[in-house]
Amino acid sequence: MESQITKTKQFTKGGLKPVTDDILLLRIKKHPRMKEFFIQALLFFCGALSIFTTLGIVYELGKESLLFFRTPGVEIVEFLTGKVWQPAIGSFGVLPLVNATLMTTFFAMLVSLPLGLSAAIYLSEYASQKIRSIVKPALEILAGIPTVVYGYFALTFMTPLLRGILGEDQVQIYNTLSAGLTMGLMILPLISSMSEDALSAVPKSLREAAYGLGATKLETSIKVVLPAALSGIIAAFIIGISRAIGETMIVAIAAGSGPALTLNPLKAAETMTGYIARISGGDLAYDTPDYNSIFAIGLLLFMITLFLNIISRLLVHRFREVYE
């Protein structure tokens, strides 16, 4: 054994040289590699940067929101429960904005959930390879279209369509229904692709079990595959809601500018995101209540969407644990 070690030859600068025991021991001893260390530190910093982003969001939103709530006449309770948003008269009740956001979100989900889920079932359980190869890229393109384009679509197609069907006197040019329905089309590909992933992750053996018992395709899909994929589908639904709440351009273009507390979807009403976009689009003076208010609304938006995203991710993880 010993003679083997001493005979070992190693590549060194001078070419092949016999290596003695001492040198070998020295070689294999741990020694700090500065370059490796610096690289690792740098890479760690890259990863940690995302944490700073989150901290930055929380810090900035929190700080400016605090300033906002310190403005004379603004109170957090009134902010959360007030029914009038009119900064000009010092009335900061966020409910009209929240209400409009909820209405557009509701109509968006009304379109995207049934359509998206049905499309997912069709694609994962029924469609032939050929149909999939046509439909899936089309849905991907739909998902990749910028939301400002959807906003344009809402205003030049959806609204005139609604006005044609329901009557021009009934439907205002800007209305939450048009924005919501268009948003539904925008979210449809998201729901369908996430749900399809969940459905396809259900093991084949489960389908075979159902078929082996004499179930039809529909029975297998609806009563066995769908329930098994349920948490994944709910996760998709929640992510869809979160997207709808945070969506800005469609509502900024089509839902109307001017907060209004109304349950009539045919009327104009400004959403939280629409308000932020409108206020910041003008010439904005720093440290005015107007300026600070977009941070307070932004914070509310951030907390709602973060909450929804976390729930959705927990559901997806649970689903993975069951089937992996």
Binding site: S50, T54, E60, L61, G246, T273, I276, F302, T305
Partner: peptide, 15 residues
């Protein structure tokens, strides 16, 4: 990182 991917773009704008 996974949570940041779901933050609405307008919040990034505010940041």
């Amino acid at each position: 990182i996974e949570n940041l991917a779901g933050v609405p773009s307008i919040v990034y704008g505010i940041l």
